[in-house]
Design a protein around this nucleic acid. Structure first.
Lengths: 114, 114
DNA sequence: CAACTATATTCTCTAAAAAGAATATAAGGT
DNA sequence: ACCTTATATTCTTTTTAGAGAATATAGTTG
């Protein structure tokens, strides 16, 4: 019960759902996600942590960058099922389209000073 | 996006998930649900309204009683899918078992003065 | 190891959600 | 019509979630 509710809660925020929809297309670092969502960097990190805690995303380090990507959902049947559904859900959603359209234009090389 | 988030939010509360699990077994009136959840009656009504607003439950009047039952989920693909999954999810959950076990013992005839 | 950069954590503030008390409404019985 | 009963709504309070500012950490480069 608790686990299920935690997964529902994790997906109860529009910004977090947007993150999932973005990561379906490619792995992204924090600064790229921030550029898409237009919220403060600490807020992005916090959202990512919530998604990570329920097994929706994972991260791998690449130098200073931390790349976030979707998991295969194997940690939980709830995550597995909903991530599966989200592959086709919301693809026609206006906000999803808007963000996906910008994906090619937002690159870490431009965002970060390196 | 908004609709999806609303469904997730509706299922982000343990009491509301318990209501869904109860209603899988039989339609219940407000006072029966209240007896199971052990929270104030207005809180039950409010939870039910949230579930009703996203198309998870419906109600029919029967005299003074209002019977709540699950919908077929036809109002939304999100509801449809998750209600389908919830038929098998959480059946082994301790709190679900506890509530389901009590279902036969809690009858409106005993709870209400009629 | 010192300076820099990307990310994480902490802290504080604001906003939203959940709970109960009191009250309102609607249906039934007398 | 009045009283009772089941449910809904409103109001207030407490708790929880989201946002940003400031700060801390970790990896990189010189």
């Amino acid at each position: 019960m608790k686990d299920f509710v935690k997964v529902m809660k994790a997906l109860s925020d529009p910004n977090r759902v947007k993150i999932v929809k973005m990561l379906q297309h490619k792995a992204l670092c924090v600064c790229e996600i921030q550029a898409h969502l237009q919220i403060a960097q600490p807020s992005v990190s916090k959202h990512l942590k919530i998604l990570e805690n329920v097994g929706i995303v994972e991260s791998t380090k690449e130098g200073l960058w931390v790349n976030y990507h979707l998991t295969d959902g194997s940690s939980s049947p709830y995550v597995s099922s909903i991530l599966g559904n989200l592959k086709h859900w919301l693809n026609d959603d206006a906000k999803t389209r808007e963000i996906v359209a910008k994906l090619p234009d937002i690159r870490r090389e431009d965002l970060c000073k390196k």
